[in-house]
Design a protein around this nucleic acid. Structure first.
Lengths: 239, 239
DNA sequence: TAGATTGTTAATCGATTAACAATC
DNA sequence: TAGATTGTTAATCGATTAACAATC
């Protein structure tokens, strides 16, 4: 009995780690930031880092870092800290960088072109297969090496190429139909830059909405609060 | 004594409302979303809405809506609900839409051009005064009606025009210097699209970072989790 | 007045931080 | 071995939800 437990020790531990219930969404939203910082450290040639050092760098508590990483199992080593290369690799796996996802960008306006030109996708393991637009004038051309097709070919292209991610940079009015087409074609996730919240009946497809306007508004709020002329609107903050 | 309290009742209440301590950051981050939905309802010609109706629309609890709005004072009326036009106006004020902020965009690459072309700023009461770039080839031209100046003129332009907001769409390497220039020139807030976190000693300037890459990563994580082939990595979710 | 719905307090839930025993 | 630092449990904090009295 005792020896069997011993033998299975490593495996049991691994399962126990990865099964630790659902990972809190707060933790997931912090993973990309860890990934970025660890990537920078790696590029600098650093080998190891402790949660205390990383916490200073990132302006969070060491406790939070250890707590967060432990949602996925023990990536560190007592008395040593974390091996940067190993930890970066593990977080890459968690975030799907190593999955080799494919994407198409629908809407070749200014934003679509901007997204076609960054190396943001490639650096995260995502391949952009094509751009789609309704403007016949640019159909058949290439933008930054990515071919532009007519939007009428979207459905077939997605099914034939098993596209994972659809990037929506179309006008608000067109967003729903394009989203539905892609969801029907088996696209797994939509990255939505249209200024509206997509509501699809397709339960399976994941939607990540970008609301740049909301971010601008938050900035305006903070500016207004921080640079308020004393004595105009509100009672002073200290009594 | 009693009558004086009575007379000051209205005023006291107003002060009490607006002084209610610091507004939780979770609430502030939700304000733009309320603003968007109320704007849509207003455009549809709706006059009033209850927290229960709005909660269904927005997929949040009615309790949260009432709690959130009450951080800023009573915008509703018992037995009636909220007057959409009034509430939308109040949230506009809170978010600084009525402040008439001004902005400049630094970096006239694909993203800078895209931001110059949207009506996102105008719709939120922010005026774009100018674009700045180091490329002499486009200095002197206009993009979407916005003049392009050389980045060497940035400091003087910001001081002379009391620019409130600086939008950074420059490459990572240039971000810090451009940010420092604007902070020194009295710019109040920076909207940072460079893929790095700006750390400025200037305590006053507010920085809102946009990390599109982080959002893409979160989407990849969710896709990976949701479409996991059963039995590969993890133990089943239900025991 | 009766019905509806807010504003607000109290209860619950989840996320963060602190502390420390385990262990490299 | 002694020192360092994790993994993890317990305590604290903040945010969300439920409930209901106030009031339009």
């Amino acid at each position: 009995m005792e020896s069997i437990d011993k033998i299975n020790g490593t495996f049991d531990r691994r399962v126990a780690q990865e099964t630790k219930g659902e990972v809190p969404s707060a933790v997931i939203k912090r993973l990309p930031r860890y990934h970025r910082y660890l990537g920078d450290l790696l590029a600098e040639g650093q080998l190891r880092i402790s949660s205390a050092e990383l916490s200073k760098l990132m302006n969070v508590t060491a406790s939070q870092i250890r707590q967060d990483l432990n949602c996925f199992g023990g990536f560190g080593q007592q008395g040593y800290g974390y091996n940067i290369k190993y930890l970066h690799g593990k977080i890459s796996e968690l975030l799907g960088v190593t999955e080799g996802f494919s994407a198409v960008i629908v809407g070749a306006g200014n934003l679509g072109r901007a997204l076609a030109s960054t190396n943001m996708f490639r650096r995260r393991g995502v391949t952009r297969l094509a751009l789609f637009d309704s403007n016949e004038g640019i159909v058949g051309t290439e933008i930054h090496g990515i071919p532009v097709y007519h939007v009428s070919e979207l459905y077939n292209f997605c099914t034939e190429n098993s596209v994972d991610i659809g990037v929506l940079t179309v006008p608000k009015e067109a967003a729903y139909e394009v989203a539905k087409t892609m969801a029907d074609a088996g696209v797994k996730g939509l990255w939505n830059f249209a200024n509206m919240e997509l509501k699809l009946d397709n339960e399976k497809v994941i939607v990540e909405n970008i609301h740049l306007g909301d971010s601008l508004m938050t900035l305006c709020y903070e500016i207004k609060e921080n640079f308020r002329t004393p004595g105009t609107n509100e009672a002073p903050e200290n009594e």
